[in-house]
Design a protein around this nucleic acid. Sequence first.
DNA 1: TTTAAACATTACCTGACAAGTAATATATAA
DNA 2: TTATATATTACTTGTCAGGTAATGTTTAAA
Lengths: 144, 144
Amino acid sequence: MNSFISREQDYALRITARLAELRKGEQMSIKELSNDMFISKIFAARIVHKLKLAGVLGTNQGRTGGMFLASDPKKLSAYQVLNIIGFKVKYNNCLADDFNCELIGKCRFHGFFHKQEIIMIEQFKKMKISDFLFNKTKQNNGGH
Amino acid sequence: MNSFISREQDYALRITARLAELRKGEQMSIKELSNDMFISKIFAARIVHKLKLAGVLGTNQGRTGGMFLASDPKKLSAYQVLNIIGFKVKYNNCLADDFNCELIGKCRFHGFFHKQEIIMIEQFKKMKISDFLFNKTKQNNGGH
DNA sequence: TTTAAACATTACCTGACAAGTAATATATAA
DNA sequence: TTATATATTACTTGTCAGGTAATGTTTAAA
């Protein structure tokens, strides 16, 4: 393991990027989405629910239900999506809030890891969901 | 949780950095080392053994035994030490060799994660153990 | 020769958690 | 009423980091 990004977080990114390709007013069912993105339907539903609670996407229940992106994909960062699914990753445990390091003030690794972590997070904040569309020709945001 | 660096890897870095402070010919016991670096003695022994097998440090058994750094700390990178302890971290599982992604060629997340991972690894390669000495002013730790 | 103190090595335990499954509830349009 | 959506909770399972325990081997000093 030891992956920064969990499967669930990865799926959340895929899902938002896929929904960002829909036209205005268009929606998509979990079934279709999970087929497209190769995620089990039930797992996808759970993720979709979290994203909905966070306001990133909207859902309609019922027979003609489905879901759609409720945020501007050009403003929605990868970092935001990851955080909704619980992105609490650290370069090293010693950077965690509740970590009590006996070597604090003496250990130079701490500062190095801290700096690297900040650099990484900046990258995740910089990248927006619109940068990750699967098929750019289908995209429908301004300038078409 | 989900830390890039495991405790064991972190300890390996501490150990090599601490040993780098010894004078030429000087050695240190696991007992003293584990006290200094706040690592359980038995866990430290396991890590030391791995580092010895990799040639990073040398050990002497027996009553007056101990260990010493066998590499030049100015050439030994943090990356090398991490690798000895099994640094197989990925930004995302999809970067693993045995990962079979159904979205390959279509998914833009892959390329992004790959790029970020390379940048990170470069940093770990650039930093040498000599950059992390605990006490730069007293490198030879006189009155011990 | 005996013993103390060092490193060497293997085996095992345990709690956390990622990942996925199962089951059931609720909502809505035809 | 029914088919088909999403909503929600609970459970299962496998993995593994982190640590503990136990025992072996080596060496120098008593």
